[in-house]
Structures are given as C-alpha cells and as structure tokens.
Write a protein that binds this DNA or RNA. Structure first.
Lengths: 119, 119
DNA sequence: TCCTTTGTGTTAATTAACTAATACAAGTAT
DNA sequence: ATACTTGTATTAGTTAATTAACACAAAGGA
C-alpha cells in the first residue's frame, strides 16, 4: 500500500480513497475481510486511529461492515458498491464540467480536447 | 465580487481563483488597473493581507504587475494570459483523466459519458 | 480460564494554516 | 511640503484539523 506523500491531503483521506478505489475496482473482493486496523497501520506506517478514521468513512458509505471483534468486511451488497462507483464518477465529471465552464469552455470543446490528449 | 463561502478552501485561494478567471475570460482587460488591495478587501469583506496574498500568487504567474505606489495592473502580455489559460486547462483535464483512469474508465468511455451528460 | 486479537472511545498533543493588526516605505497629487 | 494612496513586511492571534497515546470492551481459541 503506497501513498502519494507529496500530497498535502490528510493521511486518513488518502487511505480512505485508496481503499475505496480498491473496492470499486475489485482488488478487494465482495464479502472478503480486509486487514485489521492495526495491520493496515503497520503497512502504511501510520497510527491505528488514523486508519480507524478512514474506515469509519467507508463504513458510513456502506462499503464496509464491522463485525465487532473479528474484523471488517467488504459489503456483500454489489448494488452499494456500484452506486458508490457511480457517485464518485458523477462527482468527478460534474466538477470537471463546472471547472471548464468557468473557463468559458463548452462541452464540445472539451470533447475535442480530450480526443487530442494523448494518454 | 461574490464568494463561495460554503467552500472550505482558504479565502485567499478563492479570491485568487476568481481574479484569475476574470483575467482569463477578459472581464479584466489587458493592461488595466485592478482595484487596490484595500478596495478589494472592502469589497470582499476580508483583510488587506489576505488579498495581498492572493495577488502575490497571481503576480508569480506573471498575470499582474505591481507598480509600487500606483497600483497593480493586468499584464500587457497577451501570451502570458493565453499560456496561463492553457496551463489551467491542461491541469484540469489531466487530473480529470487520471481520476477516471483510477476508476478503470477509459477515455472513450469518458467521451461517451460526457455526451450523455446534460448541461 | 486466560491470553490474544479485534474494534472503539476519549483525550491530548501537535502542527500548521489562515487571517488579522500594525507599522513602514515610497510615489503622487494638492 | 504635506497629506493621501499605493504596496509590503513582520508579527501575532486564532482556530481548526490531524495525528497519536492509551485504555477499554468483547469475542474466540489454546
């Protein structure tokens, strides 16, 4: 688990994002157990409380579920994950379009710009 | 000059962004004088130092030029403004594509998604 | 039964990010 | 010449965000 330490985003958010993406993309399988708070803390060289805070956010989203003394698990509910994926997608696209509109750039221009852009 | 006070972005960045966009878009004409630090502070109900900080950033970009005791002016150099516009454009697009790739979404998909999106 | 592992709650420490107060410096106009 | 307006530097205050320390709670296995 590597982080973008160049970022000035708080650790707990970076961890939360990484995990969320791993869930969305399927690196962490549905229903599977994720490493314990302390294990993740070791892996990421952070404090367990920092990890805890990340996971609380993901739990609020319904992505993970806590079984008190045996660990935390990815939800079994595929729909929740799909919904979350869509939420992130929408947020990202909407913000992008707003940013572009502020610059007086239309959607048509965006599309042609994207087509030119190598990547 | 209104601000998105809902945002948790620092004031000085919000002010800087607003001004930068107004320059890019042409609301502030090339070579023209912008209001004094104190005037902007009054308009935005902020402290002159906060405004100063915003303007320093824009000056580092070359967008504005200070004439010590008579005020600050938009650069005469059209190319600088165009270059800055392009820089912002590129940053915005690149970040967007990176975000999307993290979600395993290809550029082709982005384009079709954009076409669907009403706005 | 007791030790280990799990999550969690509370509180404190730290840091740093912003904003503001204030005084100074240097032109400009009256 | 003097007062006004401009930008700027330095410093302090304030607040909030983040991280860490530590102790507690509960289940499960040796």
């Amino acid at each position: 688990m590597d982080f973008d330490f160049n970022s000035n985003e708080p650790l707990y958010k970076q961890i939360a994002k990484q995990l969320a993406i791993q869930i969305i993309v399927g690196t962490y399988k549905i229903g599977s157990r994720i490493p314990s708070v302390r294990e993740i803390a070791l892996l990421t060289k952070t404090n367990p409380n920092t990890v805890q805070r990340s996971l609380t956010e993901l739990e609020e989203e319904g992505l993970i579920i806590t079984k008190r003394t045996s660990g935390k698990f990815i939800t079994e509910d595929k729909a929740i994950i799909e919904k979350y994926r869509h939420k992130i997608l929408k947020e990202t696209v909407d913000k992008f379009i707003i940013d572009m509109n502020k610059l007086n750039i239309t959607k048509a221009e965006i599309i042609s710009y994207l087509k030119e852009n190598k990547q």
